[in-house]
Simulated assay, not measured.
Amino acid sequence: MRWPYRALSTAFGVADAVVPKALLPCTSPDALIDAAGTNPAPSAREGLRQLITAIDADSKLTFFGKVSLRWDMIRLLRNAQKVEDAQRNESITTVPVQAPIFILGLPRSGTTFLHSLLAEDHDNQVPRNWQTIYPGQRPNDFDPQADPRARTVDKQLKMFAGLAPGFAGMHPITADSPQECSEITAHVFQSLRFDTTFRVPSYLHWLEVHGHREAFEFHKRFLQYLQAGVPSRWVLKCPDHTFSLDAILEVYPDARFVVVHRDPIAVLGSVAHLTEVLRKPFLNNIDPAEIGAQVGSRWIEGANLLLDFDRRPDVAPARKIHLHYEELTLAPLAAIERVYRQFGLELRKQAVAAISEKISARPRGGYGKHASYSLETFMLSAQNLQAQFAPYVRQYCR
């Protein structure tokens, strides 16, 4: 950790110990809504209430966690209001989001790498990190170095990477990198994203019962806001899509899917470690064994849901394609050509050149060699996991 971030981390640690709770800004749902000056929909209000209740009950926030929670909630409320207000503009609402492409699969399986390559094709639109923090349109000639929103987000990302050692190596991103859909659905407080940085089991239970339909209805309005009346081919990515496929198909009945597969045993240690890294700036109560149990059970369920998805009669074979991690990382352009053929899309010469340049500049997405993260650190048994993942591995990883 470089010295400015080490000093900042130390300052947050001192503040954590000495600043009385009474001096911290209030994070009750009503106080947050009042501070944002917004009027969220009833379902968003309920999601916020469930989330804050869960955080208060089950998360022991650091000083940074307490401060960032208020900033994050107010930002989400204001962004959502901006998107909802834009619904009065018929030039935005009458242009549909047609046949979007959703990338899903187990975490650490290459979905981010694929998303970043597909973003190089100007015929595709992807939500960018800066757009989910400062929603706005992105022209083809967009220069992140010249845009104050993108420059601000890059500074925020660098600060976070300094406070979360190891994050940048495991998940290298910039302000203009493609962003996951869980950051969009977070705007109505119905997103699995919150479980990444907080400990919120009661919120997860509520969200599972509540479902994701309203979140993806907002997701569609958010994309319409970003495309600003210009028909776009959206390419969207998030491992958490695995748990919201019913809602996705209700809102986007013409959606297409790219499912990326990788041996779960090879990645679960990395998934657990990344969760631990992401939580450290926000939480004082981090239990590696609990993270291991949560990650293991969630992605056993996720693997079974992917098997179920492949059997759905309402998703024709022409609307989905399966890729394997090794296929994608060893010959990424060939894998992308196969995706385009599957969906009857033209891969233009300019896109091939841009994608090839990206591959050359950042092989495997800029990730270094994956470190071997011990399953035992998180109290996970490879033998037990192999038995529970066996149907998935037999189907997709042989």
Rank of each mutant, 00 (worst) to 15 (best):
I101E: 11
R6N: 06
T377M: 07
K158I: 11
L104M: 15
H273F: 11
H212A: 15
G366S: 05
G47P: 04
F257Y: 15
R398L: 09
F63A: 05
K21A: 10
D85H: 08
W3T: 14
A228I: 07
A353Y: 00
S360P: 00
D195E: 14
S372K: 13
A354K: 10
Y5N: 04
M379V: 07
A99N: 13
R256W: 11
E337Q: 15
V315I: 09
P144Q: 00
I248S: 12
R279Q: 14
D240S: 15
P264F: 03
A99P: 04
T329Y: 13
F257G: 07
S59C: 07
K237G: 01
Q227F: 11
T93N: 06
D176H: 11
P135E: 03
Q350D: 05
W130Q: 08
P148Q: 06
I286P: 03
E326C: 03
K320G: 15
A175Y: 08
L51S: 02
G110P: 09
E301A: 10
A11D: 00
F257H: 14
V126R: 02
V251Q: 12
L23K: 05
L333K: 11
K349C: 01
K280M: 12
M170E: 12
V200S: 01
T62M: 04
K280T: 12
N124R: 11
N384S: 13
D34L: 06
I55Y: 00
T62K: 00
F64R: 05
F216Q: 13
P363S: 14
V230R: 14
R151N: 04
A387K: 15
T93C: 06
Y252M: 07
N384C: 03
G344W: 08
Y225W: 09
Q98S: 14
W130I: 06
I103F: 09
P391V: 01
G136A: 10
H115R: 07
P100T: 04
G105H: 09
I359R: 04
G105A: 05
A41S: 10
M1S: 11
F343P: 02
A293I: 04
P332R: 06
L223E: 11
K280V: 10
P127C: 00
L283R: 03
S232G: 04
I55R: 04
P172K: 10
E120I: 08
T196F: 09
K237T: 01
E250I: 08
Q145S: 12
V352L: 01
A293Q: 12
N79T: 10
N129E: 04
P148I: 12
A17Q: 13
Q179F: 06
K220E: 13
W130P: 02
S68E: 14
D141M: 00
T112L: 07
S9P: 00
